[in-house]
Computed example of a mutant assay.
Amino acid sequence: MVLTLDSINLWAVLLAALSSFMVGGIWYSPLLFQQTWMEGCGLTELDLKNSDPRLTFGVALLMSLLASLFMAFVLVGNTSLLSAGLYGFGVGTFFVSSALGISYIFEQRPLKLFLVNGGYHILQFTLISVVLGLMS
């Protein structure tokens, strides 16, 4: 089977990416894990203020679009919402978080940082897949 852009719902990809992007904004905000994340990364409020938000958020949105597009291709022909959610959970857990875990153990990064970042990516890919599953 050859997969083309015709085989996916681009509106679903866009909505999935925007959903993922917005959840990331909440996840890494002061409401949830900003302080833990900053401590784990060694960042300060000044570091955040000195960063270019257009570049940071622009690249984050682009990466969310690419992740959503990839998941749309993975889920082609898989219309069950439960199945889509499980695929996303699996990608977030067994691909992304495990890859982060390997890097973090060698880099001697804090466990809390792994839990914050890994947890976000599990949620991110699950959400992307559920949105795609709902709109297929």
Rank of each mutant, 00 (worst) to 15 (best):
F125V: 02
N117V: 15
V91I: 14
F106L: 13
G119V: 11
V116T: 10
F89T: 13
F114Y: 15
S64Q: 05
F94Q: 05
L113G: 04
G88A: 10
H121F: 11
T93I: 03
L127N: 02
L100V: 05
F57L: 07
M71C: 08
F125L: 13
F73D: 04
G92M: 03
T126C: 13
G133M: 14
Q124T: 08
V96G: 03
G85C: 08
S129L: 06
F95M: 11
L123Q: 08
L111M: 14
Y104D: 06
G58R: 01
G85N: 05
I122E: 02
F94N: 05
S68I: 00
F95R: 03
F89N: 09
L132H: 10
V130T: 13
F106Y: 15
V59R: 00
P110Q: 13
P110T: 15
V76G: 04
V59T: 05
K112E: 14
A60Q: 08
N117A: 12
F57S: 06
L115W: 09
G119T: 11
Y87T: 15
A60C: 00
M71P: 01
S97Q: 11
P110W: 03
Y104A: 14
L111V: 15
G90R: 15
V131A: 10
Y120D: 00
M71F: 06
H121G: 01
I102Y: 05
L86C: 07
L69C: 08
G92I: 02
N78V: 12
H121L: 05
G92K: 02
Y104L: 12
A99F: 11
T79R: 10
F114Q: 01
E107M: 12
F94H: 06
L66I: 13
F94I: 03
E107P: 01
G85T: 04
L115K: 06
Y104C: 09
F114I: 01
G77R: 09
F95P: 00
I122F: 07
V74R: 05
P110K: 15
M63A: 12
L61P: 01
A72H: 08
L65H: 03
S83R: 12
S103K: 11
S98D: 02
A84S: 14
L66N: 02
A84Y: 08
V74T: 10
F95T: 06
V130E: 04
V59D: 00
P110R: 14
I105P: 00
S129P: 04
G133K: 15
A99W: 10
V76N: 10
A67I: 02
H121T: 04
L69Q: 04
F106M: 13
P110V: 06
A84I: 05
V96K: 08
G88Y: 01
A60L: 05
N117D: 15
F125D: 00
M63L: 12
K112N: 14
G118P: 03
L75R: 02
L61M: 08
F94M: 11
A67W: 05
V116M: 09
V130W: 03
